[in-house]
Design a protein around this nucleic acid. Sequence first.
RNA 1: GCGGGUGUGGUGAAAUUGGUAGACACGCUAGAUUUAGGAUCUAGUGCUUCACGGCGUGGGGGUUCGAGUCCCUUCACCCGCACCA
Length: 937
Amino acid sequence: MNYDFREIEKKWQNYWATQKTFKAKNLDDRPKYYVLDMFPYPSGAGLHVGHPLGYIASDIIARYKRHKGFNVLHPQGYDSFGLPAEQYAIQTGQHPAKTTSANINRYREQLDRIGFSFDWDREVRTSDPDYYRWTQWIFLKLFHAYYDLDLDKAVPIADLVHRFELEGNTKVRGHCDKNTPEFDAAAWNAYDTDQKQKILLFYRLTYLSDTEVNWCPALGTVLANDEIVNGVSERGGHPVTKKKMRQWSMRIGAYANRLLEGLENLDWSEALKEIQRNWIGKSLGASIYFEIQNHKEKLEVFTTRPDTIFGVTYMTLAPEHDLVDQITSSEQREAVNNYIQAVEGKSDRARQADMKSISGVFTGAYALHPFTGATIPIWIGEYVLASYGTGAVMAVPCGDQRDFDFANHFDLPIINIFEGIDIAEGAYTEKANVPLMNSGFLDGLAYASALEKVISELESKNHGKGAVNFRLRDAIFSRQRYWGEPIPMYFKGEIPIPIKEQNLPLTLPEVEKYLPTSDGKPPLGNAKNWAWDEINEEVVSVDRIDHKSVFPLELNTMPGWAGSSWYFNRYMDPDNNNEWVDPKALSYWKEVDFYMGGSEHATGHLLYSRFWQKVLYDLGYAQKDEFAQKLVNQGMILGNSAFVYRKNGTQQFLSKGLIKGQEVTPIHVDVALVNTQDELDLEAVKKWHRDFQQAEFVLEDGKYMVGREVEKMSKSKYNVVNPDEICDAYGADTLRMYEMFLGPIEQDKPWNTAGISGVHNFLKKFWRLFYDQDQWRITAEKPEAESLKILHQTIKKITDDIERLSLNTCISTFMICINELTALNCHSRQVLEPLLILLSPFAPHFSEELWQQLGHSDSITLEPYPLFDPSHLIEKTKEYPVSFNGKMRFTLKLSLDMGIDEIQEAVMKDQRTQDQMNGAQPKKIIVVPAKIINIVV
RNA sequence: GCGGGUGUGGUGAAAUUGGUAGACACGCUAGAUUUAGGAUCUAGUGCUUCACGGCGUGGGGGUUCGAGUCCCUUCACCCGCACCA
């Protein structure tokens, strides 16, 4: 029986599915191990060979851990809300649910062919009402909570209300909006319900506010910061502008510090942690309050360099700053308005393009220096961001290059406060040990001590305080889209009222079209049945909104990241209709032990998930405040595009070797039309695209050779390799092993089908140890010592390499092992059986089949991992490389029992040493036991 | 500009603690063999030299008996953030 991978793979995939081999049991005596992949968005294009890379690696880990005796949870599901299905719905009218489900079926078929050990009974889909019911439930938990800075955790909002009733908010330290008013208990109790609700929105972890948002006109929706890349939308690359809108947000800023500190204990790559650290962007410094001449308001600025306060010569406000309107003098009013108007219309991208040019305008107002009382002109400048700090800076031209450039441009004064530093050419920005001058009480002090002194001085005079500032912004949570989770809120006037938990899910209504309404409301505004009847607690027709108990429902939906921010918990107990997860299941599985996915989610999914997990932990629902202890980022598999070269202005296509010195245009051709030797199939290409029907191919050596270039895999570049094709030609086990063999899992690498034969040959070679020349070769004979040594070396190496996730070297180790066993003509069951178990995480179908052929009736999946016995490796002698002055000359076979003195004696006695030494005496003989002997002459 | 990462044959790469650099595989060269199978087997394959030898891990320098690995310096490429006060 030869290696018929097609039959074998079908057979075992079927067996695993019907036997439910990979079903994970909640509550089990075995230790648990939770292996998770980032679930896919099921796009219409299906899978290419890059997608399964991470799934294969994690599947190897999952299968390995099962052999090691763990109860493994290895689920899979779909992040099935998202833009492409909705865009498709807008174009064709097909309901996104239908598109999504068709795409999921396609994905599932492709995934099934690769032989993953997923427990499909736990599948989740974020667009399933039974799932998003709990996404909405979490939304409500955040709505009903605030962040208490004294307890440093989220607390139910009811506690806050209780405190307000007793003592107002003056003693409460909660993470809240900067516009929150102060009130005492009497004032609170005197507020009406609406007023109370408005104040509570300043505290809630999910809140409604008028926010400056990133608006993408082309997509017709707002976007979060992480959904914008280089000033344009991540999806589609459309321009993004600023707009003030009333939107739901999530107060992730409250968790900035914990999100930062929590990284310390996570086993994630340093690169990824660094991305999150940068995104959170913690800065230490001070808040300083400047009085404004002839105005009551104070101007608060954040600075990391309060030590340079005596170098302040002007202030700059962001154009959007709240105080601009109030402080602008009548003489400057027109200039200021013109400036703001010019800036306002600009998109982020336009602002970025203008980065180099300096612009600004004087407000006519003056701030007062907190220590000298000097008057400082207040300017407005585009370079100051409204969204960072307080949207205002104290400008210190001598210590900040941007301030320096601005001052020079507008002829503002520059005071040098750094002793012995020349600032004629530019600002001095180092935080070095340079004494200050022209700095009053800070004169003579350098950075560190000046910083300490100035902060204590600011605090004692009440002019400011030490402060921490974060770059991280609260996350906008509303999307003006149809295909997302409905936000479970309705409105009484301006006040949002939550739908009660027991009435969830609030399911997506049917709409006739998926575009915004004619009056600019989100697509849900098209729904006829989208109002809430408070008495009957049900969704009713919008026509009934005039009734006393019927109110309009929220028209925005949740963003794409909502459903993916907690799905890892739901897998623990996916069918629960009473709770988000059974606490018993939670306390068994706790957290993800091994999370595999792309680093592109660093500032999106991976940050939001950590945030939600911390909230759920604070409120007593989750067991751990980090959801994934270990995270591995698989690299991207790149495409190996193929090109033909059209001679310009002709229908002639030149083979790769003939293009030198010719004017040609490279044109992508489908990589499926090219064989492994880069030769183009001319008949196929003519059929493939009508552009080539009239083509004349100019050949070299009777062949047309294509050019190659490594690019991202994409349909438009015709360089997509479908895993189905590989499974057809070589089988899933070859695909699995080859993807691992390509290189380190975390590295990007180009796909090259040509190399796959090496791995395929390995499997055939391995098979031949069992079955060769029409007969089974397996014997019950006791293996030779040499074979056992190879086996145990392999056990050790494979185990170590899996543990350190060096899966590419595992494949090499298998190859070496099989080469050696073949050379030894070893067919011993005692050697080959344990090897099958070692191999089964990598090539599961292959191993299952041979396992069965060896007479086992059960699946190999739960076989115990073979024990490593070092006694088989113990050697009596060893070939020592002998070098002279570090240069290797010969090897010397010595007993391993010998001590260093004996080795030295033996090496000196050797004739070859005598020859090398030429009668001289060695200066030193270095012996590294079992490694090397070096003689220094 | 700031932060992180990577540089090793024609190609993908290996070298876990400083100890025979290039394992394993692709490709290539030569040969054998056949039941023509996406065959198999044998030998060779870093560069250079007829050879002995010499040179080789982006470049330069250093530590060491010995450096791909440690230190300094420099170059190239990739990724993230970027007028962040």
